[in-house]
Design a protein around this nucleic acid. Structure first.
Length: 841
DNA sequence: TGATCCCGCCAACGT
DNA sequence: ACGTTGGCGGGATCA
């Protein structure tokens, strides 16, 4: 023994970071840690290191760093040691490796020291995992832990294998806002209380029991999981690229953060966090081991978050004793800003995505996600769109002027919108060729409304679908393929611009899990859900929304938003299971391409049916690639939004029926059936809609054009609207002219009936169900509808737009919410409970 | 001792 | 087949 070993540490040392680096040193001794300096801060050492490191290497350091880093590091270490040693007096030795030196927290500090907190947008900073692990002298595995957490905060995004892009803290506030929202939707606050309550109860009985708990179960379960939250800009990349299964660490990290954001004293104990996180999954029996594992993971996450100075360790002493906990020390999140909406994506699938791609590509991806695991390629036409959009963007950047005007708004971005939007439509048109004016008008209207309102729309559509069967989610109606787009027409999501500031984010459900909801459409995933998100997102402030809606709704409102109603798209109803329907539909659809996608969808559907998956939240932010530096994220976002169109689908329909299978889960809200509208469950997904509150007026204005175009485009694709017709963007959400509507019942493209009135009615219903109802409705004129066109990108877009039809995504979203069955509960949404609403928790 | 959490096996995925 | 990711949990350290 002794022989071999030296104390472990040293051995470890070898790789251990610092130590090794230095050639000479061999400490041996091991005194244990000297402690660092200050008692107080645990991290002190780290801090010191960090400082040292920083000092040594200026943040930026780019390349050279590598080696240098190591040097620096070593120096740092030395320094550190010195400090420590001062106290102890021993020499240096200690240095080694003590466990602390190898801690994830310290490693994370070193990692962070390599990159600037706020990198210039102009420059792109890439992270090569291999290099980093080498430079830092750690195994790659460790780097993954760090990067995964950073990714959950959107501080980095994965570009490709072994390669990440560094964003720094630019997206942090948006991400946090989005996470907070989602956390609220999930009722985390309530869950926390329940757990605590339960604990008390336990105490009483200690003895035995466990029992009871019934309640608990529900409580825990309740929330479903959401997937990760994405910001507009980045989403796909990350998601896509790694489509690995779950991303649990990422998701877990987001959830953990959500807990802080929704807690009042922003302190969360590990125990509570672990229970909640476990709960989501399965709750119930807490397995001891499972619990333990969760705790371990939380420590990993906490270490990274601590390095980011977002949280710090504290202890809470409760009755039972002191328990480890963490306190939020990060920025306060404001709810604010405009709205935020989230979109959820139901997607069951995560977006597949493949490449990292350039920004452009990203956009495209975003726009048209491909879904499925497989990566689909984008249809050329789509690509074109994307490009054109990009071009617009550039133009915009360069030249600010936008046709539109407006301006106002907060964001700069807004201006951008127009152009992009415009392009989109154009493109769409070309492809589609739609023709009718009416449609256009409708679209316009829709878009306007949307803009004005900001709305969000909801969407709807849940699709229930059958799980397996599934087929295609698509809706018949949609069928039309889009011209270029591969996707199904049905789905088209639309995107809306999102609010500038607001955060928009999309939640993705996991496919895997997915039960829930929706499926997403095959092609696109996104859907915005307005509030809904499944769970409900609620809140937030979307003042705008409120305004719009207003009426009562209130809070919930948001969720609902009218927008949703609008959107609808869908069509078909599906009632029953979707699966069957789905299958059928496909047939209907004709489109091959669509079909293909659908396949994916199918999968999704299946998946989706069930529940929600967990998600990962991505803030949307810039979509872009950031183009130039000039634009801020917001701007970018705006741009992105432009892309999206909004669209609402009026359709509300959605769900028709019950889906037996569905489990209640999802869609609850939507059941609405409206007549025509209907979306199939599957289709439903697509529907969504929403608007975003974000936009502001200013945006709106500008947006209008684009939106409308988009909408039209979408609608056309979907079939809701005749080709020619266009709807004004504004209206979108709101009112769309009735006529246009497409709802579609049939799916077929043709079908669309427009019964406006009916539609409107339906919508209302929907809304109601959804909760939204009221407000929304009122807001919206009857008409509505609209469908959207396509949008592209799903997710990202987020905020505002939705994708409509086709949407499985949409559906998903919805479903998700609903599914949530439990999860959410109350608050938000409508969806969730089907029936109940609130159940509550 | 209980709180932390490093380490690395090994499976899921990609290529 | 092999490389990349990353879930997971044993068991070493720390406090």
């Amino acid at each position: 023994r002794s022989i071999m070993k030296t104390p472990l540490k040293q051995a470890a040392t070898s790789h251990s970071v610092l130590t090794e680096i230095q050639p000479d040193r061999q400490p041996l001794t091991t005194p244990p840690k000297p402690k660092e300096i200050l008692p107080a801060d645990p991290w002190t050492p780290t801090s010191n290191l960090k400082m040292l490191i920083s000092a040594a290497s200026p943040e930026i350091r780019s390349r050279e760093q590598r080696k240098e880093l190591s040097n620096n590091t070593s120096e740092v270490l030395q320094a550190k040691h010195c400090l420590q040693e001062h106290l102890s007096g021993d020499e240096y030795e200690k240095s080694h490796p003590s466990r602390k030196e190898k801690s994830l927290g310290l490693l994370c500090h070193k990692f962070l020291a390599r990159y600037p907190d706020y990198p210039s947008p102009a420059e792109n900073i890439y992270i090569c995992l291999d290099e980093v692990s080498e430079e830092l002298n750690v195994e790659r595995r460790r780097i993954y832990d760090i990067v995964n957490v950073l990714e959950s905060l959107h501080m980095v995004s994965r570009l490709a294998k072994n390669r990440y892009a560094w964003h720094g803290r630019h997206n942090l506030s948006k991400t946090l806002q989005a996470l907070k929202k989602v956390g609220e939707e999930n009722k985390y606050t309530q869950q926390i209380q329940m757990i605590k309550k339960r604990e008390y109860e336990y105490e009483f009985d200690l003895d035995g029991e466990k029992n009871e708990e019934t309640p608990r179960s529900f409580s825990l379960n309740e929330h479903s999981e959401m997937s990760f939250v994405e910001l507009p800009g980045m989403e796909f990349r990350a998601a896509s690229v790694n489509s690995r299964k779950d991303k649990s660490l990422r998701v877990m990290s987001q959830k953990f953060v959500m807990l802080f954001l929704v807690s009042t004293p922003q302190i969360v104990s590990l125990e509570v966090a672990a229970k909640i996180l476990i709960g989501e999954d399965q709750l119930e029996d807490l397995d001891k081991s499972k619990f333990k594992t969760k705790i371990r993971r939380l420590y990993d996450i906490a270490n990274v978050l601590s390095s980011l100075e977002l949280i710090k360790k504290v202890h809470v002493t409760e009755e039972r004793g002191r328990k480890p906990a963490f306190k939020w020390t990060g920025p306060e999140v404001l709810p604010n800003i405009q709205d935020t909406k989230l979109e959820t994506i139901s997607t069951t699938c995560p977006p597949p995505v493949s490449e990292p791609i350039t920004s452009r590509e990203q956009c495209s991806k975003n726009l048209f996600p491909s879904r499925g695991k497989q990566n689909f390629t984008r249809h050329p036409s789509l690509i074109k769109l994307v490009k054109s959009i990009e071009n617009d963007r550039r133009k915009i950047q360069s030249a600010p002027t936008s046709p539109i005007k407006i301006s106002v708004g907060t964001d700069q971005n807004l201006s951008a919108f127009p152009s992009k939007m415009a392009q989109i439509p154009a493109i769409a048109k070309q492809q589609l060729e739609g023709q009718s004016k009416k449609e256009k008008e409708l679209k316009m209207k829709l878009s306007r409304s949307a803009l004005e309102c900001d709305l969000s729309l909801p969407e709807v559509a849940p699709k229930p679908d059958p799980p397996g069967t599934a087929a295609p989610p698509q809706q018949p109606a949609v069928s039309q393929p889009l011209a270029g787009c591969p996707s199904h027409g049905a789905v088209s999501p639309v995107m809306l611009p999102h609010p500038p500031s607001g955060v928009s984010y999309a939640i993705y459900l996991h496919p895997s899990q997915a039960h829930t909801v929706t499926t997403y459409s095959p092609s696109f995933m996104l859907q915005p859900l307005p509030c809904a998100n499944v769970t409900g997102i609620r809140s937030v402030n979307s003042k705008a929304l409120n305004k719009i809606t207003t009426e009562e709704g209130d809070s919930q409102i948001a969720t609902d938003d009218p927008t949703k109603s609008l959107t609808a798209k869908g069509q078909t109803v599906k009632s029953e299971t979707s699966s069957q329907q789905c299958l059928k539909r496909p047939q209907a659809l004709q489109e091959n391409s669509l079909i293909k996608r659908y396949r994916c969808d199918e999968e999704n559907c299946d998946i989706s049916l069930t529940f929600f998956p967990s998600g990962y939240l991505i803030p949307l932010t810039q979509c872009t690639h950031g183009n130039k530096a000039g634009f801020s994220d917001k701007e970018q976002a705006g741009i992105c939004s432009l892309q999206h169109t909004t669209y609402s689908s009026p359709i509300a329909g959605v769900i028709p029926v019950t889906a037996p299978e569905l489990k209640a889960v999802n869609f609850p809200a939507f059941h609405i059936t409206p007549l025509n509208i209907m979306l199939s469950p599957t289709s439903i997904a697509a529907a969504p809609v929403l608007s975003t509150p974000c936009f502001n007026s200013s945006n709106t204005s500008s947006a209008e054009n684009p939106n409308s175009s988009v909408l039209n485009f979408t609608l056309q694709h979907i079939g809701l609207i005749p080709a020619g017709v266009q709807v004004p963007a504004n209206h979108v959400l709101q009112h769309v002219p009735a006529s246009s509507q497409p709802e579609s019942a049939g799916h077929s493209s043709e079908n669309m009936n427009l019964q406006d009135e009916k539609v409107s009615k339906n919508r209302l219903q929907i809304l109601d169900r959804g909760r939204l109802s009221g407000e929304w409705t009122s807001a919206i004129p009857s008409e509505q509808l609209s469908v959207p066109k396509e949008p592209q990108e799903p997710q990202r877009v987020t905020e505002n737009f939705f994708r409509t039809p086709g949407g499985p995504n949409t559906v998903s979203s919805l479903s998700a919410n609903s599914d949530g069955t439990n999860r959410t509960s109350q608050g938000t949404l409508y969806i969730p409970q089907r029936k109940l609403e609130v159940s509550e928790d």
